[in-house]
Write a protein that binds this DNA or RNA. Structure first.
Ligand SMILES: [Zn+2]
Ligand SMILES: [Zn+2]
Ligand SMILES: [Zn+2]
Ligand SMILES: [Zn+2]
Lengths: 165, 165
DNA sequence: GGACATAGTGTTATATTATAACGTATCGAT
DNA sequence: ATCGATACGTTATAATATAACACTATGTCC
């Protein structure tokens, strides 16, 4: 894994995405090797489709992409959902609940506590890593044992604010 | 609206829910009157179904409840979704994105910034009112104009922790 | 009161998202 | 090679949500 720090707003900025993509796929490969998990053809294909952009994609968009190739091979929904389940479980992708969509994680393996800023104009999504400590403390004070947290902030990104009226 | 302060963990505690229900329906009625909005039959029915408990319900659960009565009247999905849309818009209910479900708001009219603790054992949901200030500040520092925030924490509530193994 | 505009409802059909169930293939270990 | 476990392929269907359009109630102007 390279030492390059990935800034949260990466999805909102121009960057060398080819490189970004390569790094993330390589990180996923190493992570699976370390954990003795199989990054099989379908899992890798789905991950690569998501890594092609920082956009969230619906399961059926991914399916369409898988089936786009001229080859005769046609794949059905369960294939995609199973691959997504695996990738989610290993922290390689995230699910955007408010969009029924999936997005590649920019900090693969960091399971906990991602937060998302979702632009409703351009649909880009920034993945943050704040620590929510206030909220988690409140949950704790109610004796609530936290498993998983979903934080999705919808709004308009800086760039879209310039363009819009 | 009565002066009684509604504690966030209300859904996790025994309380006089009959009273709770009456207060919330009355608050909704007044709020609609003030805003010159019509709390029509369907809207009120859907709200009442949600107010019957502090549980989140799926749109089709609500539909089934509407159609449960012995009467011949059968209602179709769009009726429910339209009522839900209205109630969401006025801040009388919330949508739990991670469950595709809807729940009555315990602070009707307070549009902004609800957070939810969702017990995966008993499915009860506590509505908090933390202020997320850290996260919102971070969004702001990225020039992101926040519209709406979804915060849903899944875990196990205090009571279910006792019962579970 | 009647004519009109608007908002809400009823109904049918269909789109979109997700999973159940079950048989087959592949992998890794003995 | 055999075996158990994991992943894949396939069919069917469940669960969630919306499009489209006709009809009805409500309020407003005259
Ligand atoms: Zn990139
Ligand atoms: Zn944008
Ligand atoms: Zn109550
Ligand atoms: Zn519980």
């Amino acid at each position: 894994m390279s030492g390059k720090q990935r800034h949260p707003e990466i999805a909102f900025r121009k960057h060398d995405h080819r490189r970004c993509q390569r790094q993330l796929l390589s990180a996923a490969t190493h992570l699976c090797a370390e954990r003795k998990l199989r990054l099989t053809l379908r899992r890798r294909q789905v991950l690569e489709i998501l890594l092609a952009s920082h956009q969230p994609m619906g399961a059926y968009d991914i399916l369409a992409e898988l089936n786009r190739s001229d080859d005769k091979e046609r794949v059905a929904p369960p294939i995609v959902y199973r691959a997504l389940e695996f990738l989610l479980g290993e922290g390689l992708i995230h699910r955007i609940e408010s969009r029924n969509a999936f997005i590649s994680c920019i900090h693969p393996g960091h399971h906990r506590g991602a937060q998302f800023l979702i632009c409703r104009d351009c649909d880009r999504v920034a993945e943050l890593e704040s620590n929510d400590s206030g909220l988690l403390a409140e949950a704790d004070s109610l004796g609530f044992a936290v498993d998983h947290s979903v934080v999705e902030i919808t709004g308009v990104c800086a760039e879209c604010q310039k363009h819009d009226r």
